[in-house]
Design a protein around this nucleic acid. Structure first.
Lengths: 151, 151
DNA sequence: GAAATTTATATTGTTCACAATTAAATTTGA
DNA sequence: TCAAATTTAATTGTGAACAATATAAATTTC
């Protein structure tokens, strides 16, 4: 009887689990820093996008973060409730909802400025290794993008 | 006026976002394969652990996957409902709940055997690059582990 | 320009994650 | 021995993710 050679099903050999575990730990590492600003990690990502370019639509935010309205709509309502963003339909196209920073939302940018350094300190990683890992993850994500997604 | 130099708050320069996006894409890549077995991705991880070593307690499963009972208890109840595992209190220590594979749960192992290869095919990555990335992610996760966690 | 199609957002329902709390069993130590 | 502390799961509540569907507005087609 011939035993077929299979790639391993051992947990510790899986790339997927290493990725899943690292991602959750990363989010956990941000949590105490973001808690001080009353933001969750996904909310922080939305704020990063808006600090970069204000007044995007839900669709544009979703394209940037790879999240759909099912995730973003309630999240944005919570940011609105917190007074950090405003949501309003565009007069030019009533289907679109434009998300814009409030004064409080804009000001939060300054308080966030130290977060990347805090995390970088935790990592004990050279800038070079940081950039290399980041870019490897980006190309992995691109490789995994659904064939229909773009190419 | 002196402008302080801050590490970037630009989304595309963040390691955390690359990690978050790659992890979600990976889960999405598994989804259609696991759907055929009526498993979600976290359920699949639990099955990987049990196929490796059956009869672990909830605590031991949690230690392996870095998940707590708040996540595992309902997930394991769903696996039980699906007829893949059995849950029972240990007679030696009634606090512990032992999770064991049913026949159906054990048999599913064979159907899962091809999954890693399917994913590997998607990645277009050398074994070497695969192992290097996986181990980098492991050491990243270890680095991010709460100081109190272990060391 | 009315009907069909497409697009943008919202809603509903399911399943994670995770913090905080509860409840019960076990262990510890005066 | 027995009260206090610890350990293990379960429960409760909040906030993602994401599929599927709904709704409404804009665009295309004929």
């Amino acid at each position: 009887m011939k035993t077929p050679i299979h790639p391993s099903l051992l947990l510790d050999e899986q790339l997927c689990f290493a990725l899943y575990a690292a991602s959750r730990r990363m989010t956990a590492a941000y949590r105490p820093l973001l808690e001080a600003m009353d933001l969750t990690y996904p909310q922080y990502l939305v704020m990063l996008v808006l600090w970069e370019r204000d007044g995007l639509t839900v669709r544009e935010l979703g394209a940037r973060l790879q999240l759909d309205s099912g995730t973003l709509t309630p999240l944005l309502k919570r940011l609105e409730q917190a007074g950090l963003v405003a949501r309003r339909r565009r007069q030019s196209d009533e289907r679109e909802v434009e998300i814009s920073l409030t004064d409080a939302g804009g000001k939060l940018h300054e308080r966030a400025a130290d977060i990347p350094r805090c995390l970088a300190d935790r990592l004990c990683m050279s800038v070079d290794a940081f950039v290399r890992l980041r870019d490897e993850l980006k190309s992995l994500a691109a490789q995994l993008a659904a064939p229909s997604d773009d190419e």
